[in-house]
Amino acid sequence: MLKLIFKRLFDLIPTLFVVATTVFIITRLIPGDPAAVLLGPQASPDEIAKMRETLGLNQPLYLQYVDFLGSLLQGDLGTSLGYNQPVMSLIMERFPNTLLLSACALALSLLIGIPAGIISATKQYSFWDYTVMILSLVGVSMPIFWLGVMLVLYFSVHLGWLPATGMGSLSEGFGSVVTHLILPSIALSTIPMATFARITRSSMLEVIRQDYIKTARAKGLREFFVVWKHALKNAMTPLLTVMGMQISSMLGGAVLTETIFSWPGMGRLVVDAIENRDFVVVQGTVLFIAVIFVLINLLVDILYTVVNPRVKLTNKGEG
């Protein structure tokens, strides 16, 4: 098992190489000169030329690429053009914030989504089933930025219960961070929550009709055990697949959520960097997210084997 995990980690290298190259090319293909953006509207052509030199932008592209790969091999993501700081330290300052937000949103979506899906499945065609299904339909189709603004309008502006933006700080007490966390977590959790509810429902419906569930019921097991122990465990496999995908797309959703709620995470960093043509930060952050994406997928593959012992990790990484 351990050997296989290492093998899979090793397989990461070509993937990341492709990602790195793609990102490098795309960031250079977008028209627009970082030096001009950095210097603002009032810069003269001379100043722009000088800045290009300072930033190493006047070198031929292949040299820039070789430089980029060379430093990447040493774990160096480069220095931001705008912040004038190593990209790795910029990411590391913000990653915990994104992680906190994503983890809360994930917890929220699992804690509500899965039970809702189970209720929906066990009480098929009931009032509760319809409610969950309609709400989840609304949930998956709701744009994050719209929901975010609505939540703030209601809970911050109208009721005045929760802060609208920012992250608060631990120096103002733990509560400050918690209150700041609530609205963005809800906004970010809606789509995965709805997806989990729908997947749990359909997966459970399939399992519940199977013979071994009937057997369990016939044995006289309490319904609670039948559902939560026997049915859910087998319904978990498709849920895990979706979970892996949702966690990854949550990183994308975090970009939006962080922008709306002024949450100081990686999402804002990358949006800001794109606007300012700080392509060193863009490529560093995208690479970082790619690594996380691949690692999460690996983790999901490992979890499959835990949930369903019939699944084995194979050399080909078919999971």
Partner: peptide, 18 residues
């Protein structure tokens, strides 16, 4: 000085007292 990049959220933050 708080950084709020979205203009509508800025107004919301002002109205809510942030």
């Amino acid at each position: 000085f708080k950084f709020i990049t979205d203009a509508n959220m800025m107004t919301n933050a002002l109205r809510s007292g942030d």
